[in-house]
Simulated assay, not measured.
Amino acid sequence: MVEIGDDAPDFAAPLANGDVEEFTLSENLDEAPIVLAFFPGAFTGVCTTEMATFEENLDDFEDATVYGVSVDAPFSLNEFRDQQDLSFGLVSDSNKEIIDDYDVEMDFADMGYYGVAKRAVFVVDGDGEVTYKWVSDDPGVEPDYEEVADAAAE
């Protein structure tokens, strides 16, 4: 499992930002601190609330760059982004490699749905080091947004 002080696992994945572009974490460390907010699925209740709350609180993340991360397809993420009026990009981990590398994969076995992201937040500094980590085993729990903003500011 990725811990504070570890090098953040690098990844390249599609970024839904109104268009679809390739995003590589290591090539964007100049945007640090980077907040990677993993969420189980677009268009679901708590995930929609979480991404909307990040958007509403972007001013608290003054120098940080926020990215949502889920296993949804980039085209779905663009639609979700449009519907929620999100200004930050959403990373598509449709291959489920990022959730595996960050060890934040979970299943909704009772619904027959496997391999989604746990609700989790990592802050990565300009050297690629993880400086903050929050992972929930309960998909109904949202992160402490003020704590995440404080961690990004440090």
Rank of each mutant, 00 (worst) to 15 (best):
M1Q: 06
M1E: 11
V2F: 06
I4T: 13
I4H: 06
I4M: 09
I4F: 08
D6Q: 04
D7E: 07
A8M: 02
D10W: 05
F11E: 04
F11W: 08
A13H: 12
P14D: 15
L15Q: 12
N17C: 06
V20C: 09
V20D: 07
E21I: 02
E21A: 14
E21T: 11
L25C: 01
E27Y: 01
D30S: 10
D30V: 00
D30T: 01
D30H: 00
D30M: 00
D30E: 06
I34T: 08
I34W: 01
A37S: 15
F38P: 12
F39H: 09
G41D: 13
G41I: 05
A42H: 11
A42F: 03
T44W: 06
V46P: 10
C47H: 02
C47E: 05
C47Q: 04
T48P: 10
T48E: 13
T49H: 13
E50Y: 00
A52Q: 14
A52W: 00
T53E: 13
E55D: 09
E55C: 05
D59R: 01
E62N: 01
Y67L: 11
Y67E: 10
S70K: 02
V71Y: 02
D72S: 07
P74Q: 08
F80K: 12
Q83Y: 14
L86C: 01
S87P: 03
F88D: 11
G89K: 10
L90V: 01
L90D: 07
S92G: 10
S92P: 09
D93R: 13
D93A: 05
S94P: 01
N95R: 11
N95C: 00
K96G: 07
K96S: 10
D100E: 15
Y102C: 08
Y102A: 08
D103E: 15
D103C: 07
F108H: 04
F108W: 07
F108N: 13
D110Q: 12
M111I: 00
G112E: 02
G112I: 02
Y113S: 11
G115K: 05
V116T: 14
K118L: 07
F122M: 02
V123K: 11
V124I: 15
G126N: 04
D127G: 15
D127T: 04
G128R: 09
E129I: 05
V130N: 12
V130Q: 14
V130R: 08
T131Q: 14
Y132Q: 12
K133S: 15
K133M: 05
W134R: 13
S136Y: 03
S136R: 12
S136K: 07
D137V: 05
D138A: 06
D138R: 11
P139D: 12
G140N: 11
E142W: 03
D144I: 09
Y145I: 10
E147Q: 15
V148S: 12
V148W: 06
D150M: 06
A151M: 15
A153R: 13
A153M: 00
E154H: 09
